[in-house]
Amino acid sequence: MAQSFLQIPSEVWNHIFTFLPVSDKFCVRATCKYFKKLIDHWSLWKGWSVVLSFRNGPYSNQFWASLRRRKVASVVMRSNKAKHWSQLTQGLPGVSTVVVEGTPRTNFRFLEELPHVKRVAVRSTLLLCDANPAAAAQQLTHLSLCGISLPSKDVFKAALSKFTNLTSLDYHLEPIGPPVSCLQVLVDSLPKLKRLSVCFKRVLLCYDTTEAIHRPAALSSLELVNYMNFSLPTDTMRLLPHLRSLSVYHQLSHTEMDDPEHLGFYLKSWLSDLPQLSSLVDYLQETWRQ
């Protein structure tokens, strides 16, 4: 009777295990070698990310082997030490998504050793980058920059223009004084960009309409977070003819909410220049002045 569970086909067990949360999967995995093998099947770990902190030193070969069996393709890296990045490149050479967070500083050099990475997110750290990053920068299609600090905005803008295959960009930066970039630079430097999210609480964009963008932007989705009225001129959307989705999350003070000019003037002007728009989100968040 004790061996009766072995008579159940592995496909049935795999289906049962799909209903378990991750914590329960680890508990089942620890019961016996048979379940350990079943639990490590890649079909049970789709979309799963592993957090690598290296708090207790390097991870064992068995640890990396289990991740490879599960075909883990997404990691959260919480170390900027070269030896830890080296272990990642050797342990999971096929990783496609990397999130860097919780480190004092980081850069894009790890892309040279991880040729399959397509998505990168950098959060709450100091981003060091060269004006001419490695050719591997062109392999990225998705880049998310949230709460980071930059030592040089000019060097960063030059580096960003090298990511020529980006299709999605989250541009949420910590304040560093003058504007880090402007919408014109982003859409003109990144010709394949389809989705752009900008946080206006941290970055005030400047759009120079006196120098037209060399080509119509390919953007199909634009998200303006913590948007402050008059940050962009009324004719901004004329240069985004392919835009299909627009999301505007307003950041208004109590006094501005009583002024209809602040609430709708710019939005109405924008809509008249967006013939292909099919999705619109206009969210108003009230803030109070101290």
Rank of each mutant, 00 (worst) to 15 (best):
L92E: 03
W13N: 03
W288N: 06
H242I: 01
V28F: 03
K201L: 15
W270E: 07
S144D: 13
L143T: 13
D24I: 05
Y171M: 09
H15C: 07
Y227N: 09
S4C: 08
R215E: 12
S247F: 12
R68H: 04
T125A: 02
L52C: 01
N56D: 10
P93W: 14
L6F: 06
V185K: 04
H262R: 12
L219I: 05
R68N: 11
V100C: 11
V248D: 09
Y266I: 10
L127M: 12
V100G: 06
T209F: 13
L284S: 04
L126P: 00
S96G: 09
S181D: 04
K33Q: 03
W45M: 11
S197Y: 10
D154C: 10
R70E: 04
I8R: 01
A73S: 09
T210M: 07
L204V: 09
R69V: 01
R238Y: 10
L219M: 07
S10M: 05
D170S: 12
L52F: 02
Q276Y: 10
K268E: 13
S221T: 07
V22L: 12
T287P: 00
L173Q: 08
N107M: 05
C32I: 05
A159G: 05
P93S: 14
F17Y: 04
K46I: 05
L196T: 02
L183Y: 02
Q90G: 12
V95K: 09
P58K: 02
S79H: 04
I8E: 01
P93L: 14
A218R: 15
Y207L: 13
Q290G: 15
R69C: 02
A217I: 07
L219P: 05
L145R: 07
S60D: 15
R202E: 13
A82Q: 15
S10F: 03
L111E: 08
K46F: 00
F230V: 13
T31G: 04
E101A: 11
P21R: 03
T125N: 02
V50H: 11
D154R: 14
S189F: 02
P151S: 07
V28S: 01
V98S: 05
L232P: 06
G47L: 03
A218K: 14
R69M: 02
L114E: 05
L173M: 12
S269L: 04
